[in-house]
Amino acid sequence: MSDNILQVRDLCMSFFNKHGELPAVNHVSFDVERGKTLGIVGESGCGKSMTSLCVMGLYPQPQGKIVGGSILFQGRDMTKLPPRELHKIRGKGMAMIFQEPMTSLNPVLTIGDQIMETIRLHEHVSRQEAKRRAMEMIAMVGIPMPEKIFASCPHQLSGGMRQRAMIAMALSCDPELLICDEPTTALDVTVQSQILSLINRLKAQTGTSVMLITHDMGVINEMADTVIVMYAGQIVEQAATADLFAHPTHPYTSGLIQSIPPLNREVEELNVIPGSVPMLYELPKGCLFAPRCPYATARCAAERPDIVTASEGHQVRCFRCMPGWEGQ
């Protein structure tokens, strides 16, 4: 077997409400290699966060339900494990950091308490030992004065410090997989790059694999080894990062890359992709991206394309990459 820490195969998660079944995650397959970073990119509402919550088993229940596929983590299918086993894996096998460091820490517990809680939950160590390790973690994520921060409450820290504390908490039990859901979106740009390089440094130091969810192509370029681009719950393109930026093949990926503001020249107007991600209850009949696609044809409006291999390690869900496309 390959050295994949996580294998997601054909994952389908749907919400069930008055509109019927709404596919939020639609036949998604990907691997996370040991020690590597997988980036998941897409606009708000494209299913990237839901995918990561499915992996953790934390998707909203009972409205949401995994209706198909498998999530193999260290060879065990997360979708079939009993809750008891899931509790053991969360925080220990895989850990997660979230977008909003402001609201993601419990306001009534000190930072130290919250880090120690994770350690004490998963490893049978004494209070002193847990405290020692918590301090070590706080120092490791580059927080000055660990003793002071240990006893502080979240509201006394800045956003960047809180996100560092979140990372310390997430890494406190040496997880094999760290899921970062928009870890820097709520932070200032300078703090953002500090946090990203911290994640990279810790990844190298601990050998943990990273699943990084973001809407920022710049962050992807900096961090990811491989990328999946998601749109309306589907993967539309999947490739190694360098390959993806050199040869963006799906029109949506090209659109995302073109909408990065260039730094070296002035622009009159930013490139934008017209329209927005469709609501799950009004998905188009054909290709999900067709209504916003500059290359859309009659076929795109009528049928949904399958995902196909465009070149070695590069997969695209677009009719233009299929044999028989005449460039209509």
Binding site: A95, S104, L109, M166
Partner: peptide, 23 residues
Amino acid sequence: DYMRTASAKGVHGWMLVMKHAFR
């Protein structure tokens, strides 16, 4: 959000209810 964080750490059951939610 912090309740989700707690779940992501592996906190569950009454500990989640009393320590994280109730307070």
